[in-house]
Design a protein around this nucleic acid. Structure first.
Length: 553
RNA sequence: GGCCCCGUAGCUCAGCAGGAUAGAGCAACCGCCUCCUAAGCGGUAGGUCUUGGGUUCGAAUCCCGACGGGGCCGCCA
């Protein structure tokens, strides 16, 4: 609807330029159209006349007069006003909004899908936690935001791949292997002084037990080989946990990408060679450095350490170059905010290797403060008193958990109160939204019991929807596609959550004030069409966010 | 010292990339179930948008500087 009006305004403007009613010939890239806060200002408003005031050298209100005259008899518009300093306010005909309801019912699950992405290939890499232990709450936020972002991009017409980068090559994997081996020996009754820098947590013992059951005690196997076996076993098992935890969250990756495979295929060496060739690296203090300062970083960064081993940065260079080789137009990394210092070197690396740094977008996810009943829930890795993501999901449920993670912009810190998230009452916004959906379903059940068929698109006379609240609901439905586009363009999935809350609130209010199933059958059918359109949009948005849309609560 | 994020109602946060009278939820107070699910609705109260400058027709929004909170600055990951 908004787009149709935008087009109309644009056409009118071009016409004014053509016949000399306006002279500057300055067509803005996009006609700005907004929904005014105050409904008295109409359904849409544009500031076009004000922005044209300077180039036209005329008063905004005069320009508005000219534009309004050109649009006067447009079929979409019921009324066009000039207001304030030069706003042009449009009130659309009711039929426009009835058309929206039909469109929603006609398109069903597809309503809200769009094509701003135009098939652009985007990869969203997220979570990518080290496979050395279970996911915790911070990973959870990144997981949900990454997943929802990917969904939103897909809905907006991008071609999206979800990827998990598995850090299975570094030294922390060796540490895991050593830790498992020590626990394994302990199980054999050996007395072990467990090292400070080992993985202390109890799950390592579980891993050792499982390994012992499957592969035996590794007695007589040379140390290095035993560590390697333990490491590989550990990574494999931990990845299974991680995948299962993510599954419990409704998250599935299209691809799990192994860091180790980069080394196995010599990709790291190849990229380093390219850097050398371009004279972007140099040796100093027995180490190999990348000249990231040439591209805006604070200092140069090490690729190969003086002991000959590679830094994570080295494999990240290869990994990210390889992403673009795979044909992605844009690559999004979802990281914890504590990694922000890493961004300049990544962008520098891309620039050095001839990629526009803008093709890599890093989404930083701020910290999660875990609370219980308003009090900080302290997690010490040392003490082993940390709560895993899985425990949180099991305690509060996937829907509530996801909703809380998505409720805030990702660049602000999040207080996650376990008790609040667990509450199954109106204090909990998840249920508020889901309840709206369940209510429509309930109305449908009652209608069917009364022998009324739920109307489909184009089957009812929607002009029976005369109430202001009814038109307002239809207008809200019309905004859903815009919410998706906004969320996709600005990488802000939380917008969909806010949209959901607004729509649910509007529906609850309507429900309380007016009955859907009334004596007059025409009105009943019209209202059923409206609330079912609401149901479709609620379901679409909930599903998109990975939340269930219950038919009964 | 350098860098990143945040600062809006008592609390937790939105604010549609510059627009008209600044919003929601929770907490407080007052109301609404012989009526499609009260996990709901209506109403009252609550604000120098941390602060000082700047940009312009117009700033919570953009720029610069303070102040306050959190985070990061490794040949760790």
């Amino acid at each position: 609807m908004k787009e149709q009006l935008r087009l109309a305004i644009r056409t009118a403007l071009e016409q004014c330029f053509a016949d000399g009613r306006l002279t500057s010939g300055l067509l803005p890239d996009e006609v700005q159209l907004e929904v005014p806060k105050n409904p008295e200002h109409g359904d849409f408003a544009t500031n076009l006349a004000m922005t044209l005031a300077k180039p036209e050298r005329r008063a905004p209100r005069q320009i508005a007069e000219v534009l309004t005259a050109a649009l006067r008899d447009h079929p979409l518009c019921e009324k066009i006003d000039i207001a304030g300093p030069g706003f042009i306010n449009f009130r659309l005909r009711s039929s426009c909004w009835y058309e929206v309801i039909d469109q929603v019912l006609r398109q069903g699950q597809d309503y809200g899908r769009g094509n701003v992405g135009n098939g652009t290939k985007i990869q969203v890499e997220f979570v990518s936690a080290n496979p050395t232990g279970p996911l915790h709450i911070g990973h959870g936020r990144g997981a949900v935001v990454g997943d929802a972002l990917a969904a939103v991009l897909q809905a907006a017409g991008y071609e999206v791949q979800r990827e998990y980068y598995v850090n299975d090559a570094g030294n922390q994997v060796q540490t895991l292997g050593r830790s498992i081996l020590l626990r394994l020996r302990e199980l054999q009754g050996e007395k072990i002084a467990f090292p400070e820098d080992g993985y202390q947590a109890p799950y390592v013992v579980d891993l050792a037990e499982k390994l012992s059951a499957e592969l035996g005690t590794l007695g007589g196997v040379p140390e290095a080989e035993a560590i390697d076996t333990c490491a590989r076993f550990g990574v494999k098992e931990v990845l299974k946990w991680i995948a299962a935890d993510l599954q419990a969250f409704g998250i599935q990756f299209d691809n799990w990408y192994s860091e180790k495979s980069l080394y196995d295929r010599d990709m790291v060496e190849q990229e380093l060679a390219k850097l050398k060739e371009k004279n972007l690296s140099f040796e100093k203090d027995d180490a190999l450095w990348l000249k990231t300062t040439e591209f805006g970083d604070d200092k140069d960064r090490v690729l190969i350490k003086s002991d000959g081993s590679y830094t994570y940065f080295a494999s990240d260079v290869a990994y990210h170059m390889e992403k673009f080789d795979r044909g992605f137009d844009r690559v999004i990394d979802v990281w914890g905010a504590d990694h922000h210092g890493y961004i300049p070197r990544m962008k520098a690396m891309l620039a050095g290797l001839g990629h526009p740094p803008e093709d890599l977008e890093v989404l930083l996810i701020q910290m999660v403060n875990l609370l219980r009943d308003g009090k900080p829930y302290i997690m010490g890795k040392r003490s082993g008193n940390f709560i895993t993501l899985r425990e949180v999901i099991d305690e509060v449920g996937s829907d509530a958990c996801r909703f809380f993670f998505l409720m805030r912009r990702c660049d602000s810190q999040l207080d996650f109160d376990l008790e609040l998230a667990k509450q199954q009452n109106s204090d909990n916004p998840v249920y508020y939204v889901q309840y709206a959906h369940a209510r429509v379903c309930s109305i449908n059940r009652n209608a069917q019991e009364a022998g009324i068929d739920i109307p489909t698109a184009g089957k009812t006379d929607l002009s029976r929807l005369e109430l202001e609240e009814e038109l307002a609901l239809a207008k809200q439905l019309a905004r859903y596609p815009e919410a998706i586009i906004g969320a996709a363009l600005y990488y802000e999935p939380h917008r969909v959550i806010f949209y959901l809350q607004d729509l649910a609130a509007q529906f609850h209010s309507y429900y309380n004030r007016h009955r859907v199933l009334v004596d007059d059958s025409e009105t009943t059918l019209a209202r059923l069409s409206l609330v079912n359109a609401v149901r479709v949009v609620l379901a679409n948005a909930l599903t998109l966010m990975g939340l269930s849309a219950p038919e009964q609560m």
